[in-house]
Amino acid sequence: MRVNFTVNGRRQEADDVWEGESLLYVLRERLGLPGSKNACEQGECGSCTVRLDGVPVCSCLVAAGQVEGREVVTVEGLADFAKQRAEHSGHGGACATGACGGTSLQDARSWTAKGTDSQTGEGTELSPIQQAFIDAGAVQCGFCTPGLLVAADELLEHNASPTDADIREALSGNLCRCTGYEKILDAVRLAAARQGEAV
C-alpha cells in the first residue's frame, strides 16, 4: 500500500508498504530517517519515540497505514521543531517567581562540564534539550537518546520547570542501560534552567 504523511514538516510518500509495517520501519528503512531507534519493538523502551500530531508515541506500535495524512516529528527534525516553537509561540514558559519547584540555573550548572569541545557537526543548530544532553554527559552509547530527547522536549514544552519527580515520571517510558539516568536528569534540569533564563 501507499502511505502519505508529513515528516519533520515535509510531505513524504512511501510505496509498497507491507500492511504489517510499523511507522518506525517506514521511517528507518523507507524514508532514510534511522534516528528513531529499534530497541524493543514492543513499546517497552521508548527508543522509537516520535511526535504524532504533537503527541509522543512509540512509533514501533503505530501501523504505517495509520499515519496517512498525519504529522510526525522525529529526532532528526527536533531542532527545527523547537526553533519554530520558540519563534511562533514565544514558548519558554519560565516561572516568573522562580518558585515553581524546578532547579535553578545556578544549581543546574554547579556540576557543568568544563571545556566545550564537541566540534562534530559544528554549525549544526541544536535544540536546547539536545545541547543539554551533550553538556551534561547524558549520552553514552546514545541508543536511547533520540527517544529520550523527543520525550524530554515534550515535557519541557508543557512544563517549563519540572520537579525531579515530574522528570522521572515523564521519562519513565524510556529505558537507558548506560547512564543510570543521573546525567539524563541533569540534562533536563539544565535545559529547563537555560530555557527559563532565556525568557
Binding site: E41, Q42, G43, L61, V62, A63
Partner: peptide, 23 residues
Amino acid sequence: IAGGTDIMVEINFDHRRPEYLLD
C-alpha cells in the same frame, strides 16, 4: 487496531498475522 499497543507487538514479534487490519 486503534492505539496498536497490543496488536502491533504481536505483529512485530511474528505472533500473529491477521488477514485484515481494521484501522
